[in-house]
Simulated assay, not measured.
Amino acid sequence: MGHLSPITEAEVVPLHGVNGPTLDEIGLAAWIAQAEPGEALVYHRGFLAVDATSVISKLPADRQRTLQLVAAAARRAAEQNLVHLVQSRLGPDAFAYIAVARPKPGPSGAALSMRLLEAA
């Protein structure tokens, strides 16, 4: 089994920032479709379990729902072997949730499109 090198800041695609637009399911699927193996995407910064739970989250309801959908899509993509999901601790109760692109399974085209649809 090979050794994975740590992900550096330069290798992480920041699709959203603290005040930037929120990543949605379509953005995640688009990134997965074009990402090269080993490329990484931070799809959330914070504490996912808290931020996606309405009774304790400080996020607005629409951001909570988007986060729930993106997290579920990331999990489905991992189940389809399209990405690895990892976390990096940023501080107390703060994490970066990262999707790392895996090699695309089989030939691209319709087969990959179907896997992406299943993951979305």
Rank of each mutant, 00 (worst) to 15 (best):
R45N: 03
I32A: 03
A73Q: 05
A94E: 15
E36I: 05
H16P: 01
L117F: 06
D93P: 00
I98H: 03
A40T: 07
G27K: 03
V100I: 15
P60V: 10
R76A: 07
L90C: 11
N19P: 00
R75D: 09
Q87H: 06
L67Y: 06
E118W: 01
E9A: 14
L112V: 04
A77L: 02
V42I: 14
M114I: 10
A120N: 08
A52L: 07
R65N: 02
S5H: 11
Y97S: 03
P14M: 04
L90R: 15
V42S: 08
H16S: 13
P107G: 14
P105H: 07
Q87D: 09
K104C: 11
Q34L: 14
G2D: 01
A49Y: 06
A72P: 00
I56Q: 11
W31G: 09
M1F: 03
G91C: 04
S108D: 12
R65H: 12
A73H: 02
N19S: 12
Y97H: 15
L82D: 05
E39F: 01
G106C: 07
A72M: 06
V18D: 10
L23Q: 02
V100Q: 07
A99F: 05
G91K: 05
P14L: 12
R115L: 15
A72C: 02
F95V: 03
P21A: 14
A73E: 02
A30H: 10
G38N: 11
R115T: 01
H84R: 12
I98G: 04
T22I: 09
N81W: 04
A94R: 15
T8F: 08
S113F: 07
D93T: 10
D93G: 02
V100D: 07
A49E: 14
R45Y: 02
L59H: 09
A61G: 10
R89D: 02
S88Q: 13
T53V: 02
M1L: 00
I26V: 15
I32T: 08
P103T: 06
R45P: 02
V70N: 05
A40N: 06
S5A: 12
H44G: 09
T53Y: 14
H16Q: 15
V50H: 13
R65L: 14
P105Y: 09
V86M: 08
A111E: 15
D93Y: 09
A73L: 04
T66Y: 00
L90D: 10
E9G: 00
A40Q: 06
Q34C: 12
P21M: 04
E36N: 11
F95T: 07
T53A: 14
R102N: 11
L67K: 05
L15W: 13
D62E: 14
T53R: 13
V42Q: 10
D24Y: 04
L28R: 01
E25N: 08
L48F: 06
A111N: 05
A72N: 07
E9V: 12
A96R: 10
Q80Y: 00
I98P: 08
E79M: 06
G27H: 05
L48G: 07
V13R: 10
V50D: 13
V12I: 15
A96K: 01
G106H: 10
V42C: 14
G2M: 08
A96H: 13
A110D: 09
L41E: 05
T22V: 15
M1C: 01
N81E: 13
L28G: 06
Q68Y: 01
L59Y: 10
A119Q: 03
E36V: 06
S54G: 14
L69F: 08
E25R: 15
K104Y: 02
P37Y: 02
I56K: 07
A35L: 04
E11F: 00
G109C: 07
